[in-house]
Structure formats: structure tokens, C-alpha cells
Amino acid sequence: MFLYLPNKFDFIQEMKRIILFAIAIMTVGFANAQGTGSRFGIKAGVNFPNSSSDFHENETLMGYQVGIFSEIKTDENFGIQPELLYSTHGVKNKFVSDGISYDNEVKLSYLNLPILAKYFVTQGLTLQAGPQVGFLMKAEENGVNITDHVKTIDFGLNFGIGFNFLEDCSVDLRYNLGLSNALDFHVEDVNYKIKSSMFSLAIGYKL
């Protein structure tokens, strides 16, 4: 179980999150303005976590994602797609200390900024890969705020495929490989960690 302590710097942290959000928005806006092959759109989907942890038992919780993207074609076969997504997921876990079993339900929310390279196999089918940085927006354990005990930045790598249909619509199936420990805390002499990896299925619409 996490020990929650009130954060004296909540206001400063919130301002940092707002600044990061603004930087991400400007990045997407700048990308959208480049080249004649640019398309701007919105997307939404579901997340299926596949987290790894040091807990004795681990059960993941589905989440969702919603946001905006810009598809920038550099030529007939290649493109770049920056996105700005609000994404949620969670995990149920159990660990034992001094013979006592603890059950936790942790829910995490991030503002994710993936930047994907896209290869157009055909006009409709694409292969996608690229890095992702996530900024923590909210973290709860059993309904209690634990933001102070979760790392504020998360890194990952995305791999996936996409299919364009009806000219303006697309569907993406991806796997995000978590590279950093989202949670990192100690119970006596034992260190528990969780890496957030997940599959996602999302539908996009180009405006």
C-alpha cells in the first residue's frame, strides 16, 4: 500500500503540466502546417494494458484514449504522424508483507505525445513505429490521490499497423512497449515496480 502525503507544491506541479500541454499542442499544430500532404484529425479508442510488475499477483484494467493527430506525408510511401492523446489504464495487484496480504487498484492517466513514422504499404495499409513520451495527469490507488508517488514522465515505443477506409477514416492497432517504471516504491526491504505496456485499438477521422 502506498503512503499518501499531501504535496505542498501542487500549484507548481499543475502549472508545469499546463505548460507541457501547451508545448504538445504547439508541436501538433506546427506539424499540421507542414507540407501539402498534411491532414488533421481526431481519434478515440480503448487500451488493453499488458503491464509487468514485481507484485505476486497482477491484473490489468482496461482504459481509453482520446485526442488529436496530424498525418504528414513526406512522399508517396512515407509519412510522420504526431499525436496528442489523453490516455488511461490501470492495474490490480497484490503483495504480501509480514504475512499480511495487500490488495491495490491503481488507475493512471497520462497526456501522451507519440511521434510515429508511417510506411504506406498500399494506399490503405500502413506500418507504424516511433517513440512516445507521457506526462502524468492523475494517479489514484483505491480512490486516493498518489500522484506524488508516481513518476511524472513515462517513456515508451509504439509499433503497429493502420488501415484507412472511407477516405477520411482510419483504424490503428498498436502495442506500446513501456520503457520506464511508472511506479517505484519500497515496502520494508522489498522494491516494487510496474512498467506500463499496452495494446490499443483506435478509430480516427480526418477533418
Rank of each mutant, 00 (worst) to 15 (best):
V106M: 11
D148N: 15
G130Y: 08
D103G: 08
Q123W: 05
D168Q: 14
N181F: 01
D184K: 06
N191A: 11
L127H: 08
N164A: 14
M137N: 08
Q128N: 14
Q123L: 05
C169E: 01
G143R: 12
M137S: 12
V187I: 11
G160P: 09
F120E: 02
I153N: 09
T122P: 12
Y110R: 00
D189A: 07
E188G: 09
Q128K: 15
L116I: 07
L177C: 01
A129D: 04
V171K: 01
E105P: 00
Y175G: 00
N181M: 04
F185T: 01
N158G: 06
D172A: 05
F120C: 06
Y102D: 00
V133H: 10
A129Y: 04
V150P: 06
V190C: 03
L136F: 12
L157N: 03
F120S: 12
L108V: 10
N181D: 15
T152E: 12
P114V: 00
N142F: 01
T122L: 09
S109F: 00
K118C: 10
N164D: 14
N181A: 05
L127E: 06
E141P: 00
T152C: 02
Y175Q: 01
L125G: 08
A139D: 02
S170V: 00
L177Y: 13
L157P: 09
E140K: 15
L127W: 09
D103F: 13
S170Q: 13
G160N: 08
F155A: 08
H186F: 12
N142A: 09
N158E: 06
A139F: 02
I194L: 10
F135I: 11
I194P: 04
N176S: 09
F163E: 01
N112S: 15
F120H: 15
